[in-house]
């Protein structure tokens, strides 16, 4: 299968997890990645520039109507949902919270699944709520690949467990193995 994009959702403990994965990707890595990390609405985007500095690929806060580009990581701004449009641009919204969260992982995953169908990889990382479970199920229903961080290795295991309970997951991996999976998926696309 040729995959065209990756979506990642994380909550409690997610900053460390995201940093670990993204900073392990090589500069030639070309799949676009969109990420929702639950944060307080008052958080600024300083941490995004920190992850960018540690990474070989570009990491930025998502701008509305921005086209998903190869080799770029887009992170949802605090207090906005992030969605993927059919023309592969990004949208932001201030719609009501989903699963008590804005940005919500389900919102990103479901919209991305509508666009990329079976060519999408969805990843649920550490967290202590069940956001992302329905979104990951939707990705699977569309034929995409479902990846979950091994709950025992997550700072908070509840979110990965909820995702595993919601759908037939393809890979359950410790944090350090997730970047390697991305790299092997990427090599198949070359």
């Amino acid at each position: 299968m040729i995959y065209r994009a990756i979506v990642i959702g994380a909550s409690a403990g997610g900053l460390h997890a995201i940093k670990t994965i993204v900073s392990a990707l090589p500069s030639g890595f070309r799949l676009p990645i969109a990420i929702v990390q639950h944060l307080s609405p008052l958080t600024d985007n300083y941490w995004i520039s920190m992850v960018d500095k540690l990474s070989a690929i570009a990491v930025k806060e998502a701008d509305e109507k921005e086209k998903l580009e190869a080799g770029t990581v887009y992170i949802a701004p605090a207090n906005y949902h992030l969605l993927v449009e059919r023309d592969e641009t990004l949208s932001l919204s201030i719609d009501p919270k989903v699963n008590y969260a804005r940005p919500a992982i389900d919102t990103l995953f479901e919209s991305a699944a509508d666009v990329f169908r079976q060519q999408l990889v969805g990843v649920v990382l550490t967290g202590s709520n069940s956001d992302g479970a329905l979104g990951l199920r939707r990705i699977k229903e569309c034929g995409g690949l479902a990846v979950v961080q091994e709950p025992g290795t997550a700072e908070a295991g509840y979110m990965p467990e909820a995702a595993i309970a919601a759908t037939q997951v393809d890979y359950i991996l410790p944090l350090e193995k997730i970047a390697s999976l991305f790299i092997s998926i990427h090599q198949q696309t070359l």
């Binding site: 993927v84 449009e85 059919r86 949208s91 719609d95 479901e110 919209s111 509508d114």
Partner: peptide
């Protein structure tokens, strides 16, 4: 309107 948002609603 942006379609992803309309579709969701």
């Amino acid at each position: 309107y942006s379609e992803a948002h309309i579709r969701r609603r």
